[in-house]
């Protein structure tokens, strides 16, 4: 490790050895024992950190009470949570039973609507007859005695 590398470590991580990356701590320690300039740099960094530590902030005496007692609005809840709460309300009133009942009917209604619009590959078994009248007519032909027709 060079002196410039060590200077960069001090500028980036500060003077506390514990905050230096683990993998370079040994290199830094070695440099500090060998190089007086490195020790001077560390000393200078110590002075800065001590000066920063000497700055204190005011005592926000009433702030905690203000924050704790501020009026809390309703929370932005997830859409799913709100939907579940609406469908399954906490109160067990009968007047609200229509909600889960309606939710249970939704798949049924959906199935009916879907089935009404799509055939899903189901083959029409009327064998080409367009309506019941045609089919009844054909059945009536089948019942006619062949001998009677020849007459």
């Amino acid at each position: 490790m060079t002196l410039d590398d060590f200077k960069h470590v001090l500028d980036t991580y500060g003077s506390s050895r514990n905050s230096w990356p683990q993998e370079i701590q040994d290199d830094c320690a070695k440099l500090l024992t060998e190089d007086a300039q490195a020790r001077a740099l560390l000393q200078s960094q110590h002075r800065l950190d001590a000066a920063l530590d000497s700055l204190t902030v005011p005592d926000f005496r009433d702030l905690e009470a203000h924050v704790m007692n501020q009026p809390l609005p309703p929370r932005d809840r997830a859409l799913v949570d709100r939907l579940v709460e609406w469908l399954l309300p906490d109160s067990t009133s009968l007047s609200e039973l229509w909600r889960p009942a309606m939710a249970a009917c939704v798949p049924l209604v959906f199935g009916i609507v879907l089935g009404n619009y799509f055939s899903f590959g189901v083959v029409d078994e009327t064998n080409g007859f367009e309506n019941w009248d045609d089919e009844l007519l054909m059945i009536s032909f089948a019942d006619v005695d062949q001998g009677q027709l020849e007459l």
């Binding site: 702030l63 203000h66 929370r75």
Partner: peptide, 27 residues
């Protein structure tokens, strides 16, 4: 907030707002 803004009144407003958001956006 104080160290960024540098004055007490703004710091109090921001702090209140932070905890209001904690309440409303907890999820």
């Amino acid at each position: 907030a104080f160290r960024l803004l540098g004055n007490q009144r703004d710091t109090e407003d921001i702090s209140q707002e932070v905890f209001l958001r904690l309440w409303t956006n907890a999820s």
